[in-house]
Every structure is written in C-alpha cells, then in structure tokens.
C-alpha cells in the first residue's frame, strides 16, 4: 500500500502524508524523507521559485527546508497538518533567506509558458504572467507569502492563518493589499486589466 494518501482537496493540493511515513522519518530513515521530498518537491519548489524569483534561491531554500524537517521532525505535533508544517518551514526559510540577501542585486529568471493557457489570447496571458511573476517577487515578504498561498496554492485564509500564524483577518488584508499593489504596478507598466 502506498504511504501517501490523497488529500481532500480537488485542486492540485499536495498529498497528505501517512502517520506511518512520519514515524519512519522520526526514526531517521532516509528513504522516508525521500518519499516526502518526492511527494512535495514540485509544490514547494514552485512556491519558493515564485517567492524568490530565481531558481538558485529556490533550490537553496528547498534544501534548507528539508534539512530543517530532518532536524525538527521529532518536534512535529501530530495535531497539525503535516503539509501546513512543511509550508511554514519553507516560508520561514524563504523569508529569512530574503532578509539575509536583501542587499544583493535582484536576479530573476521568468522565461516560461503557462501550465494551462487561460484564454485564447495566449501570448498576452504569458506576457502578463511573466510580468505578474516579476512583480510578485518584489512584494513585501508577508504579503507575498499570503498572495502565493492563496492565489497559486489554493489555500483558504484559514489555512494561511494556520501556516503563517496570523489571523484570518490579517491574511485577507494582506491578500487585498498585495492585489492592489500588483494592479497598481501592472497599470504603471502599461498593462490594462481587460481581456485580450
């Protein structure tokens, strides 16, 4: 039987982790950590990449996150959702990494295509996506974390509150402010909100 159980969410949510797998991680089994890594790597790496705006910091953040998971798995309380705990570690790592490197020159790499083009005007959407991605990575850290969790990972404000240890109201307020900032910056870049 697979150690990974499918979560409740219909959206591309990360799988829930079986208690047995967590126990194996607690026992220090490298294979168990690898199983967790394989299950979550795309979700966490995408989030880190969007947070930092470049793959180098995203790779380092993911590496630091799994080292922190190894170090702290003994302190993981079963009452919390494992994915929430994992996302919390990743975002804390991203935020503290960003603080350490705040003075460094911003380096971004955003050449990509959308995973599923959103409208017939694919080119315009891809351009907007690249611009949006760039602007997301310059938002204030907490606003950025909230925006990414809500808009790209499909978290509810309740889940965001639990993950970032903030209230639901704060999460909603950060999300609203992030969206307003993004709209303002996109408008300044000459992008109109209308389709096509």
């Amino acid at each position: 039987m697979s150690m990974l159980q499918q979560g409740d969410r219909t959206r591309s949510a990360p799988p829930a982790i079986a208690a047995e797998l967590i126990e194996r991680c607690r026992a220090g089994q490298l294979g168990a950590f690898e199983e967790v890594y394989r299950a979550y790597k795309s979700f966490l790496y995408s989030l880190a990449w969007r947070f930092h705006g470049n793959r180098f910091d995203a790779e380092d953040s993911l590496q630091e996150t799994f080292l922190a998971v190894y170090r702290n798995i003994g302190r993981f309380e079963g009452s919390a959702k494992f994915s929430t705990w994992l996302y919390r570690i990743l975002l804390n790592t991203c935020i503290s990494r960003k603080r350490r490197e705040r003075t460094d020159e911003q380096k971004t790499d955003f050449s990509f295509e959308l995973s599923h083009p959103a409208s017939a005007d694919v080119e315009a959407d891809v351009m907007l996506a690249q611009l949006l991605q760039r602007e997301i990575s310059t938002l204030p850290e907490l606003q950025r974390a909230v925006f990414l969790l809500y808009a790209t990972q499909g978290f509810t404000h309740e889940e965001i509150g639990e993950t970032l240890r903030i209230s639901q109201g704060t999460s909603k307020s950060y999300y609203h402010r992030a969206k307003e900032t993004l709209k303002k910056r996109l408008r300044a870049a000459g992008v109109d909100g209308r389709e096509g």
Binding site: S42, S46, W49, A58, F66, L67, P117, A118, L132
Partner: peptide
C-alpha cells in the same frame, strides 16, 4: 490576476537537488 496567478506553471526542482539534501 487571480486566473493568471492560478495558471503559473508548476516547476520541478533539478534531479541533483535531492542528492544535495541527502548529503546534508
């Protein structure tokens, strides 16, 4: 904005990243 953000591509880390984590 919400639709585009939702459509941002999912990225996979490079294969060698697990080797680095494993070494750590």
């Amino acid at each position: 904005i919400e639709r585009i953000a939702e459509s941002l591509p999912v990225q996979d880390p490079p294969e060698h990243l697990w080797k680095r984590i494993e070494a750590d």
